[in-house]
């Protein structure tokens, strides 16, 4: 027999009052499992102070972290895709775009513009993973190409922050050709001897890696970022084996010779500014 027995049923209480709302205040670290107060995460540039795990951050947050305050001037913000295939899957692509625009406040998966890094002028492009997986369609292709053209016209260095699953399926071969378009523009930038710093963040895969992201004068990875051509699931299906730990992470690419450096987020701005100082400083 138990020592205590319930004499009365609990006071009826609606479910909404039963739980303390902590959603949005705390975040679990994907690296070490630590629960982190979101406010302190923001102060630490969205990097876990315990294990150094780099959380994914938004395109605009990137620009805020890298560009001197008050110097950013966005370009082509209103550019939108005209849905060249009239693509329909489980729902029309047009509808998907509408809800994405509402959710992100952006027209497509990239922010481009002019700004300064520690006083040095740069053209910067920052990809938004939340917008259809950061996928590259006609708008991302055109905005990056225009950024490169502005770099050439004004003799200004280029910085691209990649975060993307690759080419955008919903725009079919038009997306595919953006790889060639951007890479061709980078050939011209190369001939003009204007520096291009490519920063690869978690995740950068597919057609984005297989075009501009790998073509930097410097290719810089964020710690722990997934970077590859094929996604890990595709490779596992092909070879029918589990992939080794750390496969396709920044450190793996560094070891195999495809990144110049892996730079923590806290040092990224001074690293890039320093590199630009070496390439184009007096």
């Amino acid at each position: 027999m138990s020592w205590f027995s319930k004499k009365q049923s609990p006071v009826p209480m609606p479910d909404s009052e039963r739980t303390v709302k902590t959603e949005g205040l705390w975040q679990k670290c994907d690296g070490c499992g630590q629960i982190i107060w979101r406010k302190s995460l923001e102060d630490s540039l969205h990097v876990c102070d315990k294990c150094g795990h780099h959380f994914r951050i938004d395109a605009r947050e990137r620009i805020r972290l890298l560009i001197d305050e008050g110097t950013f001037e966005e370009k082509d913000a209103a550019m939108a895709t005209s849905d060249p295939l009239s693509f329909v899957d489980s729902r029309p692509y047009r509808d998907r775009l509408k809800s994405m625009r509402k959710a992100t406040g952006m027209q497509d998966a990239i922010v481009c513009g002019h700004g300064q890094m520690q006083g040095r002028p740069v053209e910067i492009c920052s990809m938004e993973l939340k917008f259809i997986g950061g996928s590259m369609g006609t708008v991302v292709g055109e905005k990056i190409t225009r950024s490169i053209e502005r770099c050439i016209a004004g003799r200004v260095p280029l910085v691209i922050i990649s975060a993307s699953g690759g080419a955008r399926m919903q725009e079919g071969a038009v997306s595919l050709m953006q790889l060639a378009k951007i890479s061709a523009a980078l050939m011209r930038l190369d001939e003009e001897r204007i520096p291009f710093i490519s920063v690869l963040t978690d995740p950068t895969t597919g057609g984005v890696t297989a075009s501009f992201a790998m073509l930097g004068d410097l290719n810089i990875g964020e710690p722990g970022a997934l970077i590859g051509f094929a996604g890990p699931r595709v490779i596992e299906q092909t070879i029918r084996q589990k992939l080794p730990d750390g496969f396709q992470r920044s450190e793996f690419l560094l070891k195999h010779g495809f990144l110049d450096a892996v730079v923590p987020r806290s040092e990224l701005k001074s690293y890039i500014a320093g590199a630009l100082g070496f390439f184009v400083g007096n």
Binding site: S82, E171, A180
Partner: peptide, 11 residues
């Protein structure tokens, strides 16, 4: 040839 490939508009 590749430069003109795309399909977009600006509002």
């Amino acid at each position: 040839k590749f430069r003109q490939m795309g399909s977009f508009f600006s509002e």
